[in-house]
C-alpha cells in the first residue's frame, strides 16, 4: 500500500529581508503560516514547488515542508518548522514580534 501523503506547504526565505515566507493559494507570498495553502495532493505539491522555484527574484531556498491540517490553517509537523513560524526562542524577534 502506498504511504499516505503528508500535506505540505511551499516555503522559502524572502530574497531581500530573509524572512520566512509561505506560498498562499492566490500565488502570493505570505509571512503567516496560517495563510499558507495546504497542499494535500502530491502531484499538485510538486507543481506548486516547481512554479515557486522559478520565482528567484522574490525568494531563496524554496522547499516543501510537512504540515498537518489545523483549525487555524496548516500546523507544523516538525519542530524546525515550528521555530521558523515563530522566531528564535531566546529573543522576542522574528515573526512572533511582527504578529
Amino acid at each position: 500500500m502506498p504511504r499516505p501523503f503528508t500535506p505540505k506547504v511551499v516555503t522559502a526565505n524572502a530574497l531581500l529581508e530573509g524572512d520566512v515566507v509561505y506560498l498562499a493559494e492566490d500565488g502570493s507570498w505570505t509571512r503567516r503560516l496560517s495563510e499558507a495553502e495546504l497542499l494535500t495532493d502530491e502531484a499538485d505539491a510538486q507543481i506548486r514547488l516547481i512554479e515557486a522555484e522559478k520565482r528567484t527574484s522574490e525568494v531563496v531556498g524554496v522547499y516543501l515542508a510537512d504540515m498537518a491540517p489545523g483549525d487555524a490553517g496548516p500546523e507544523p509537523v516538525h519542530f524546525r518548522e515550528a521555530f521558523r513560524r515563530t522566531g528564535p526562542s531566546n529573543r522576542f524577534h522574528g515573526k512572533q514580534a511582527d504578529a
Binding site: N13, G18, D19, V20, V60, F83, R84, G94, K95
Partner: peptide, 15 residues
C-alpha cells in the same frame, strides 16, 4: 558562493 565568500549566510529566520 559570492555571498558566502563575504561572510553572508542565509539562516533559519534571516540572513
Amino acid at each position: 558562493p559570492l555571498r558566502l565568500m563575504n561572510g553572508l549566510y542565509l539562516q533559519l529566520h534571516a540572513y
